[in-house]
């Protein structure tokens, strides 16, 4: 029986060594170790052995079976590896071809800048407010302390529509509408479309502004400077220099033009800042008592500031756009870059 086992073992190992596929190896396993396999049959014959021989031969059978099992296992593993290696080799693709991308759309730069500014101010506790674009003269001018026939109205060339209405020339009427609706404290930011009848390389008859208004007790001009410094630093990067200089708007006093250190040249002087090192980006000031009078606020108890800026101007500075008209030509070759 020993010789028989030896023969069987050698035959099996030989077969494993010469097998060339996983399938052949599986067949060998069945023919040897399967229910009707040769080794199994041999094991069944153990019963006919004597009590002393049985454990010895039994152990031998086990050894032979383990040997065949392990040879088969190794061979199958290696055959599988080869199969996988061959598959991987055959499935090679040219990964340098471009990927299949979901199409990317883009927001208009005006929308992008509005979103960014609103998000900065929302972090400072300002809510977004809106108002009509077709406005009454009273909200657009009178309540903002532009009396009729006042030369300050020349600062804003106005489009008129019927019924003593006009296309708002600034987002400032939203200040009035907000203050008429609520009592202080007020903290709003109002983005919107505005219109002036003026059209050339630097003026568009339609453009966008963002208005800000804060009214509370003891708000100071220094606070205005603080808020605008934080804002410009967030919008244009840390430590953008900010300069306030005296100016005039009928609805604020004291009023200021706000300049930032030129973002193009860093304040050294270049073509964009006309060699001044400064870029004018917004107008601001403390809300004029006359405005409070129109909305029934008492300037003896509260104070506040307002500011307004042109979105297109900021978009042009942020993205280095030299001609405002590009923003409204809607050429996708331009828009898709944002």
């Amino acid at each position: 029986m020993r010789e028989q086992l030896e023969q069987l073992r050698n035959g099996a190992l030989q077969a494993v060594a010469t097998a060339s596929s996983v399938e052949q190896l599986q067949d060998i396993r069945i023919s040897m170790l399967g229910r009707k396999g040769e080794l199994t049959a041999l094991m069944k014959g153990l019963g006919s052995l004597s009590a002393t021989e049985r454990p010895i031969v039994g152990q031998l059978v086990n050894t032979v079976r383990d040997e065949i099992e392990s040879a088969l296992g190794a061979a199958i593993a290696s055959a599988q590896e080869k199969v996988i290696a061959a598959r991987l080799q055959s499935e090679r693709i040219d990964t340098s071809l471009p990927g299949r991308r979901p199409q990317k759309g883009t927001k208009h730069p005006v929308s992008l800048v509005i979103e960014e500014i609103c998000s900065i101010f929302s972090g400072l506790g300002f809510a977004v407010a809106e108002g009509p674009e077709i406005e009454h003269d009273w909200y657009n001018f009178e309540a903002l302390n532009f009396p009729p026939e006042h030369p300050a109205r020349d600062m804003q060339d106005t489009f008129f529509v019927e019924n003593d209405m006009l296309l708002r020339t600034h987002t400032s009427p939203v200040q009035i509408r907000t203050m008429l609706k609520q009592k202080p404290p007020v903290r709003i930011i109002a983005p919107g479309t505005v219109y002036r009848c003026d059209s050339d390389a630097t003026h568009s008859p339609m453009f966008h502004q963002i208005e800000g208004l804060m009214v509370d007790t003891k708000v100071t001009f220094g606070d205005l400077k603080g808020i605008l410094t934080v804002f410009t630093n967030q919008l244009f990067g840390q430590k953008t220099g900010v300069r306030l200089r005296p100016s005039y708007f009928p609805f604020t006093e004291p009023s200021a033009e706000v300049d930032i250190a030129c973002v193009i040249c860093g304040g050294k002087g270049c073509r964009v800042c006309k060699n001044s090192g400064w870029l004018e980006i917004l107008g601001a000031g403390m809300v004029d008592p006359e405005v409070y009078r129109h909305v029934q606020y008492d300037p003896e108890n509260i104070s506040g500031f307002a500011f307004g800026m042109g979105i297109e101007r900021i978009a042009m500075l942020k993205y280095g756009i030299s001609d405002m008209r590009l923003l409204f030509e809607n050429d996708v070759r331009f828009l898709r870059q944002f």
Partner: peptide, 19 residues
């Protein structure tokens, strides 16, 4: 105007969730 220090306002909390 350059002599005015930039300060941050002391403000009351307002709920300002977008509409």
């Amino acid at each position: 105007y350059d002599k005015i220090l930039a300060t941050m306002p002391i403000a009351r909390v307002i709920s300002d969730r977008p509409t």
